[in-house]
Design a binder for these strands. Sequence first.
DNA 1: TAAGCTAGTGATTAATTACTTACTAGTCAT
DNA 2: ATGACTAGTAAGTAATTAATCACTAGCTTA
Lengths: 200, 200
Amino acid sequence: MEISTKHLPADERRALTIEAVIELAGLQNPSKITTSAIAKQMNLTQGALFRHFSTKEALWQAVMEWVKDRLLARIDQAAHNIQSPLAAMEAIFMSHIEFVIEHPGVPRMLFGELQQAEPTPAKRVAHSLVQRYIERICACIEQGKAIKEISLDVDTRSAATFFLGTVQGLVMQSLLTGDIQRIRIEAPGVFILYRRGIRG
Amino acid sequence: MEISTKHLPADERRALTIEAVIELAGLQNPSKITTSAIAKQMNLTQGALFRHFSTKEALWQAVMEWVKDRLLARIDQAAHNIQSPLAAMEAIFMSHIEFVIEHPGVPRMLFGELQQAEPTPAKRVAHSLVQRYIERICACIEQGKAIKEISLDVDTRSAATFFLGTVQGLVMQSLLTGDIQRIRIEAPGVFILYRRGIRG
DNA sequence: TAAGCTAGTGATTAATTACTTACTAGTCAT
DNA sequence: ATGACTAGTAAGTAATTAATCACTAGCTTA
């Protein structure tokens, strides 16, 4: 239909810009994405971007907020209405993996942003995303302990960090093989190992 | 004694340059380290660097080679003379953690380099480092299976990826807290979880 | 001590980058 | 249709970056 229309309303253009950044982040080092590259990706001139985002930093912040909202919503929905904490964690794990497969640039941006020396606005958002994510995993683990599904001598916080590290490890693997789809196949096996590690 | 001597022999200067890069990588996003910043870190003019490295890319390759040699040597030595495969893996894990604490820039550079779109020389080296690392972990796991220390229904490759991911997760945690030392405290607990996951 | 080489300086360069601006095309309400 | 507003263009700017170069200080050896 309307492929590559010029003159879009501002909010649509903003949304498209964010998507363009996330797509590019899947193809190259996120911290090397230039405003020219973003503009090119969406058939726009470079200057036009600054009509919608006052600075590049503001754009990155918007991107991280998009990521935060979507990812947290996704895992919340995945865990919704699942009684068993362990089963909820498995659902969160798998939905996170699906999210990463859809948007391979996301974990790369997250990690890159957390590395930033100065506390940029985007880093702040990334930080709060990870913290909230870990809080939710911690809550599952505590519930699991309460009903003896999870071993009491597991350190909750360590196990939650470990959970996220597992995803990160799968992402690293995909960077090595260059094949993102593979992590969908490997993920269940890796989650089994994780579950055996914390089970009561 | 000889603090900040000028006019060093070329190989000493090369070594100091590599160390300067690794130190800076612990403080800021590795892909944003400029040649000026490196020179400043070692009290040298920017142009002088190019007497020792033909391009910045060549410098990065040298850095990754330094990392590869040191890290592989470290884990090999850690596993040396340990009979039990599981104990060897624990020794490798802990020595890797110690290495990361000494050089927090290293895992950040590794991950960043693997993200590079074009296959730069540095990326090639990073790639081979990770592959060799994983091969060694795979070998331990296979040995462990042979003597029933490790469960036979564990997928060797997944478990090896998982091993590295665990380290990566701890690094991520340190980026969040800003405290590298903390991972030394958390590491043993996390390894216990890992071991429980694969134990026979 | 003088010659010869090595390593460092400091100024310069071309390319790239985020951002600006003067102008213009497209859209929509009246 | 017209006018007002919105979004896009294209050219430009200042700052930063990797790399170069002419020159020089300082070891080393004869």
